[in-house]
């Protein structure tokens, strides 16, 4: 088992929901998905590469035919998969500190959800509903979400300079190069190994 690969941590969580509440959650996700400004906190947290919520209605677990038996469940289930950078505690702490309202809106429909503040009780709940990853792959283990964003900015800026670099006079180039360096100077951080997760 490994929840960690390089700079990313894979979290899986599953929580039971009464089926009538599922519809409320679907409506909330619909709004969240279609009103982009509502996602800004998630974006600004900046240490989540990908995350998804998947609702499995109680009668919708995949069924491939016998000998598999159909599931007989009373609850719908909310699955949460996240790929985040940094430590588990940092992730939950940050969620609890700055996104508690949003989290509550998503998870309050789950049974026994204690609310995302104060953080220790919230962590106990997450610990209880988290299940571990057996195999975790990333194409760029040495890069975080921030590193990737930085790299794309450098690439874009480099491409722009490169397009005209050959036709400039040396003095024009000096000026263009200075502007180039100024444009990338906050995006040059080296990528590499992650600190030990604790």
């Amino acid at each position: 088992m490994s929840n960690i690969n390089g700079k990313v941590y894979a979290m899986n969580a599953i929580t039971p929901m009464r089926p009538w509440k599922t519809w409320i959650l679907r409506a909330i996700f619909f709004i969240l998905g279609n009103v982009k400004p509502l996602q800004s906190d998630l974006i600004n947290l900046s240490f989540i590469q990908f995350a998804r919520w998947v609702i499995i209605p109680r009668n919708s677990f995949p069924f491939v035919g016998a000998p598999q038996q159909r599931e007989l469940l009373e609850y719908d289930y909310l699955l949460f998969f996240s790929n985040f950078n940094g430590t588990w505690n940092q992730y939950i702490d940050a969620f609890s500190a700055v996104l508690s309202k949003g989290l509550d809106l998503v998870w309050k429909w789950s049974e026994k959800f204690p609310g995302s503040t104060p953080v220790t009780i919230f962590k106990e709940y997450i610990t209880r509903v988290q299940f571990d990853t057996d195999y975790y792959y990333t194409a760029y283990p040495h890069a975080t979400a921030n590193d990737v964003k930085n790299a794309h900015i450098v690439q874009q800026t480099f491409d722009a300079l490169n397009r005209n670099a050959a036709t400039m006079s040396p003095d024009q180039f000096r000026e263009a190069y200075l502007q180039f360096v100024l444009s990338v100077q906050t995006h040059l951080g080296a990528t590499g190994e992650a600190p030990i997760v604790f």
Binding site: N146, D147, G189
Partner: peptide, 11 residues
């Protein structure tokens, strides 16, 4: 000893 929160990678 790390710089991700400051967006400077491993610096």
């Amino acid at each position: 000893n790390y710089g991700n929160d400051a967006h400077v990678g491993n610096e």
